[in-house]
Every structure is written in structure tokens, then in C-alpha cells.
């Protein structure tokens, strides 16, 4: 067949980005601040909270990583990268001024337009704070567009909690309701709560038009969504950011298939309604 489609760029080819700063958030998780090398690309790079990028440690591989920064604060991109495999370990060996490859942004992200004018409940567990932090910052920068904003965040222990200092500051923010909890560990110095993130549901009341944004470990979705449904939130208004194995990020390689959806393209944000229709999703 001769004439198929207009020419486009090679979607597998990353763009170069430079590490501006690195900061350890937990023993395994490091915040990467990066800047695209090409100034025009850096200027034009736009994204939605909840989208992700494929980040390359060249020679080792590529990993899908949620964007933790907010598009309302352009210039630098932030990624929380947990050292769990070959590629993320290689990324952790890099230093400021080293280069990474970036492709993206990919995926649907959180429906921020839909969330406008509504109460927003954000639920995160462990490293799951990474994608919803983008949403939280986005909402803060457009605070008058949203009704009440609540963040429920749980981590295994104090040292596993991401953005501890930032959260402590935000906790005092008059327009935010932040509830933090630790599963266990030494909580003597811990001024907040202990118990799983689902135990925080008892402490909140949920307004009728509430939308939820959730990112927790794979095993926790069933419990969290049940808690949210019990609170009266509609299944269509529970938005979950899911994790899957991904290679291409652009709906070609098939690896992230969840039923008839691709996590990389149709997700990574799915509603509870999607989960009811797609077995194996949560």
C-alpha cells in the first residue's frame, strides 16, 4: 500500500533533558528536577496532572514515571523515582547535569476541567503521592476553581513518606485539609495519625458533589474504592491512577493491556466504573 498517513516524528525517539537538581525524598525515592535541553521543547512542553513520561537511562532502559510537578509551574519537570528495578537504579546513579531521555507526556491524566466547581478528595499511599502531587499543586494554583480540597495520605513509616516538609507546610494552608497517617513504626515524634489510609475515611465528611483522585499500591485499590463508595461518592467520580508494565507508552507494544484498554493511552487514570467493566483492573 503506497499512501498511508502523513509523516510524523518517530515516537520512540526520546528528547534530551538535563538533570537540574536531585533530592532524596525517602531512602528509595528521589525527586528529579529536569529541564529539556532544547529551549523550544522546554517552552512548549505542556501536560495535565496525572500524565506520565517515559524516562530513559540510556544503555539501561526506559521506565514510565508520573509527572509530579504541575503544568502551572512551567520550566522544570519533576519526577519522583523509586529505586525498584534496573532502570530506576540506573537513574539513581545519575548526578546533576547528567542527561536523561524523555518521551511524553503520555496518558489521559486527571480530568481537571471536570473537577472544577466540585469538592476534591485526594487519596494517596506511599509513592502514589507522586502523580496526585501534580494535581494538588495544580489545584492550589487555581484554587478558586475548586470547592473544598482534602488530601488523605498514608505511608508505611515516617521515612517512607514523600514530601514530608512540603506536606507540613501545606498542612497549615487554610484552603486545604490534609490528613496524614503512618501504617506503623515509631510514631512518638509523629504529630499525625496512625493506621492505614482507609482509616482516615472515618474522619472526613464528604460533600455531595465530591470527586476523588486515588493513587495507592495495586493491592489497596479494592479497599480504598469500597471506602469511597461507602462515603457516597459515585463510581464515575472515583479516578484512579494505575500502574502496569509498559514498554512503548503509546499504545503499540500491548504490554499494559487491561481488557480493551491500554493503561498507557486510555489510562493511567481510570474510573471505578471502568474497573467494574474491565476485570483484572483493580
Amino acid at each position: 500500500m503506497s499512501q498511508l498517513l502523513a509523516k510524523t516524528e518517530n515516537p520512540y525517539r526520546p528528547v534530551r533533558a538535563k538533570i537540574v537538581d536531585l533530592r532524596d525524598l525517602t531512602p528509595e525515592t528521589r525527586l528529579f528536577q529536569v529541564k529539556l535541553v532544547d529551549p523550544k521543547a522546554a517552552r512548549d512542553f505542556d501536560y495535565r496532572p496525572g500524565q506520565f513520561c517515559q524516562i530513559s537511562a540510556l544503555g539501561t532502559g526506559e521506565a514510565p514515571i508520573s509527572i509530579s510537578s504541575s503544568p502551572t509551574r512551567p520550566g522544570l519537570l519533576e519526577f519522583c523515582i523509586r529505586r525498584v528495578g534496573r532502570t530506576t537504579s540506573a537513574l539513581h546513579r545519575l548526578n546533576p547535569n547528567d542527561e536523561v531521555g524523555i518521551r511524553g507526556p503520555y496518558g489521559n491524566g486527571f480530568p481537571v476541567d471536570y473537577m472544577e466547581g466540585k469538592d476534591v478528595l485526594i487519596v494517596a499511599g506511599g509513592v502514589g503521592l507522586a502523580p496526585v502531587r501534580s494535581l494538588l499543586l495544580y489545584i492550589l494554583d487555581n484554587r478558586d476553581q475548586f470547592r473544598s480540597v482534602t488530601l488523605l495520605y498514608g505511608a508505611r513509616s515516617l521515612e517512607d513518606m514523600l514530601f514530608r516538609e512540603e506536606l507540613k507546610t501545606l498542612e497549615r494552608h487554610p484552603d486545604l485539609n490534609i490528613l496524614l497517617t503512618l501504617d506503623s513504626g515509631d510514631t512518638r515524634l509523629w504529630p499525625f495519625r496512625t493506621g492505614l489510609v482507609t482509616s482516615l475515611f472515618e474522619e472526613i465528611t464528604v460533600a455531595p458533589k465530591t470527586v476523588a483522585a486515588v493513587c495507592v499500591p495495586p493491592v489497596a485499590y479494592k479497599f480504598v474504592t469500597k471506602g469511597l463508595l461507602d462515603k457516597g461518592i459515585s463510581g464515575e467520580d472515583i479516578f484512579m491512577s494505575l500502574e502496569r508494565k509498559m514498554h512503548c507508552g503509546i499504545g503499540k507494544c500491548g504490554c499494559c493491556a487491561v481488557g480493551s484498554k491500554y493503561c498507557c493511552q486510555d489510562g493511567p487514570v481510570f474510573t471505578y466504573w471502568d474497573a467494574l467493566n474491565l476485570p483484572d483492573m483493580i
Binding site: G59, T60, R86, S89, A90, R93
Partner: peptide
């Protein structure tokens, strides 16, 4: 090559 680069091989 992977080990020299600092990675465990695939």
C-alpha cells in the same frame, strides 16, 4: 557491557 555500565544484565 551491562555490568561495566553498572547494571545487572537483562
Amino acid at each position: 557491557s551491562s555490568l561495566i555500565h553498572g547494571d545487572l544484565p537483562l
